[in-house]
């Protein structure tokens, strides 16, 4: 944007990095420390024996918790709270889960294809009782491909800000305001990559449709689950989860 000075972009960068650091939920050092701490065969077996309802409820709670951190990230990002409330909600409703999926690559060990879950690293088989192997595998594949980019924490911060601030989301009321913030974030992201000689990753970033598709698959799976267990969803699933996904 010709109207944004380098100082403005630098301020935005610092603000996004700070907001991210304050809301990243799990510290990278802790995740790295536990990287080879995997569930035993017996523990995996006991997860696999859990009922579908229990496993769904657990995962819904974890997703909701992760999303609350993303909401907090958005709130601390300069410019986000200046958007009208309709647009804040549109962006979070469409983008919060996408950000959670990107953040997940920090908690993913691509060397043994496991993800941090309830204190240890878990392979896709652990989630068998959810009854959505295809979705779980797609999410693991996605985390694997993102891991290969070796994102730094600063890169994740700016990239996830851009996942959230997307002026192409339907139902925005002040599209141009979102567009301006998005343009500035793009400048900030590219500026940082240039500074660190990391522009090469730009061509390797996941296409926007990939994240959208994973979120769509998740909502479809929830729909099927809800048809089987409407009372469980109604009575025990976190209200924020239901508000966002059903």
């Amino acid at each position: 944007s010709p109207n944004s000075s380098l100082t403005e972009i630098e301020h935005l960068t610092q603000n996004v990095l700070k907001s991210y650091r304050e809301t990243c939920q799990l510290r990278l050092e802790d995740l790295q420390l536990l990287r080879w701490e995997t569930f035993t065969k017996e523990e995996v077996g006991s997860y696999q024996k859990k009922s579908m309802e229990e496993m769904w409820e657990r995962c819904a709670c974890h997703i909701t918790e992760a999303i609350q951190y993303v909401v907090e990230f958005a709130k601390r990002m300069s410019g986000f709270m200046d958007l009208c409330q309709n647009d804040q909600i549109v962006l979070l409703k469409a983008g919060a889960m996408e950000v959670v999926l990107v953040r997940m690559c920090r908690a993913f060990n691509s060397e043994n294809r496991t993800v941090f879950f309830e204190g240890k690293y878990a392979s896709p088989e652990l989630f068998k009782s959810l009854g959505c192997n295809e979705l779980i595998n797609s999410i693991f594949d996605f985390a694997h491909s993102l891991s290969s980019l070796h994102f730094s924490e600063n890169e994740i911060a700016l990239f996830t800000a851009l996942v959230l601030i997307n002026s192409n989301r339907p139902w925005l009321q002040e599209k141009s305001k979102v567009e301006r913030l998005q343009n500035n974030l793009e400048l900030a992201f590219k500026h940082m990559l240039r500074k660190n000689h990391r522009e090469g990753i730009l061509a390797k970033l996941p296409p926007k449709g990939k994240l959208r598709n994973l979120c769509y698959q998740h909502m479809e799976k929830l729909r099927s689950f809800r048809q089987m267990y409407p009372i469980i969803v109604h009575a025990v699933f976190p209200p924020l989860y239901k508000e966002l996904f059903s």
Partner: peptide
């Protein structure tokens, strides 16, 4: 607004 009351509340809560 009613449809997204929890998001509304989270966004308005300045203490979080």
């Amino acid at each position: 607004k009613e449809k997204h009351k929890i998001l509304h509340r989270l966004l308005q809560d300045s203490s979080s």
